[in-house]
């Protein structure tokens, strides 16, 4: 699984890096950013779902790798 932030939608609420700090960080403006290449290790899948479901702008996309 991979996480992706739609930067056109992100408004910088910061819920993703608050709830899933192993997957997301913040840029200089406080907007969310994906750490590394966004690959979600098996143990962090729940964090990824939590962040995606909790984003007020629905800016986080989860993609299953084929």
């Amino acid at each position: 699984m991979k996480v992706h932030i739609d930067t056109g939608r992100c408004m910088g609420h910061g819920r993703c890096y608050d709830l899933a700090p192993d997957l997301f960080g913040e840029d200089d403006e406080g907007y969310g950013k994906v750490l590394g290449d966004g690959t979600v290790p098996p143990g962090l899948r729940e964090q990824a779902h939590l962040a995606a479901a909790n984003c007020p702008e629905r800016a986080i996309e989860l993609a299953e790798e084929s």
């Binding site: 408004m11 910088g12 910061g14 403006e29 406080g30």
Partner: peptide, 9 residues
């Protein structure tokens, strides 16, 4: 009005 309430701000 989201930007003025963003964490960094």
């Amino acid at each position: 009005v989201t930007a003025p309430f963003a964490i960094r701000r």
